[in-house]
Write a protein that binds this DNA or RNA. Structure first.
Lengths: 188, 188
DNA sequence: AGGCCCATGTAATCTGTTACATGATTCC
DNA sequence: GGAATCATGTAACAGATTACATGGGCCT
């Protein structure tokens, strides 16, 4: 029961099709969750048959027809229950960290490469999130927006994504540097 | 094929029993991966039958007997291959973030509570990681240790855990503050 | 006497990933 | 003419979680 509530939360801001939802979950633009298209379609079916979302068909001439979904009152009540229930912290499981853990007994060249690629990726995400934040808050300062804004949820999760990616970036760069220095030093 | 390599990496530093491994994975003391005891036992069986780890029985008088495992040469070769293969970034999926995303349409009291509990948890982890780092590096400065230390993998992953938990802590405190301020403001 | 720690698992279920399938339209 | 985008799924598999099971020793 996890993706379920992420889908509901994503539909709070707009009526979306499975395809649109899937895209934002896939790329992590909806930076608060991640899922593949198949999962999204499957979850929407379940949510609809449980009455938590309602879909309506939109006929399109030039493109395939699509179904737009919105959260029902029952769906909102479900989210309410979910928010009130206690959540246990889920840790991240990252292959790259396992590789770093093993880095004394394993060739570090490919690990350094991966750290650098990861750093590039994180840098791109940081920039994306920063521009998203500006878009969300518009003319207002962050303080004003967070005080008076009518819809701040996406902004807050985006802040979370930013903090995470900045930390990750810092770490990747640092570790790549350390491992590289040891290569250079040991090579002599 | 994910836990597999985490177990191998954990066995690089010491010969451990399933129980000891399970405990460190469970509590995230081995802060580079997380798994339940059942998974660890199952994975050890598979690793042993694949010849990647070797177990030896240790008879104990006062406690149940146990089996200590160590990585074989084949296991090390497998880790080597793993480290060289490219890793795609896995995102974290955190219920609490979904709740924050929904926080404009849902009662924020329980969410604020959870953010504060999470912050306490993160603070404890930060302290744990900081003391672990001191233990690892001993008398040396961080710079010296990372340059000359013979085994730095666990130190580097611990640094990663620290960066992550510090960021998480900062975020939880900030968001709890924002949501609380909006409650106080709106209540008037 | 009751609860926690050591020590190891099995079985069922739930979630997530990979592979496959289809078909029209718009952009380069 | 070929690739990407829109639009929706099914089926098989891999990975993670929950529930259940056992049994002695140690601490309060």
């Amino acid at each position: 029961m996890a993706l379920r509530h992420a889908v509901l939360a994503a539909l709070l801001d707009a009526e979306l099709s499975g395809y649109q939802l899937a895209k934002s979950f896939d790329m992590g633009v909806a930076n608060f969750w991640q899922a593949l298209p198949q999962q999204v379609y499957a979850e929407l079916s379940k949510l609809e048959s449980d009455g938590l979302v309602a879909g309506r068909e939109v006929i399109q001439e030039t493109r395939p027809n699509k179904r737009l979904f919105k959260v029902t009152d029952e769906g909102l009540a479900e989210l309410e229950r979910f928010a009130a229930a206690s959540a246990k912290p889920t840790m991240l499981r990252d292959d790259l960290v396992v590789k770093v853990q093993s880095s004394d007994l394993v060739d570090t060249r490919p690990v350094i490469d991966q750290l650098r690629k990861r750093a590039d990726f994180a840098r791109a995400k940081v920039e994306l999130f920063e521009s998203l934040l500006v878009k969300f808050r518009g003319e207002r300062t962050e303080e004003e927006f967070l005080r008076d804004g009518e819809r701040i949820g996406p902004y807050l999760t985006c802040l979370g994504g930013l903090v995470f990616e900045r930390g990750h970036l810092e770490w990747c760069e640092r570790i790549a540097g350390v491992l590289q220095a040891r290569r250079d030093g040991a090579g002599k």
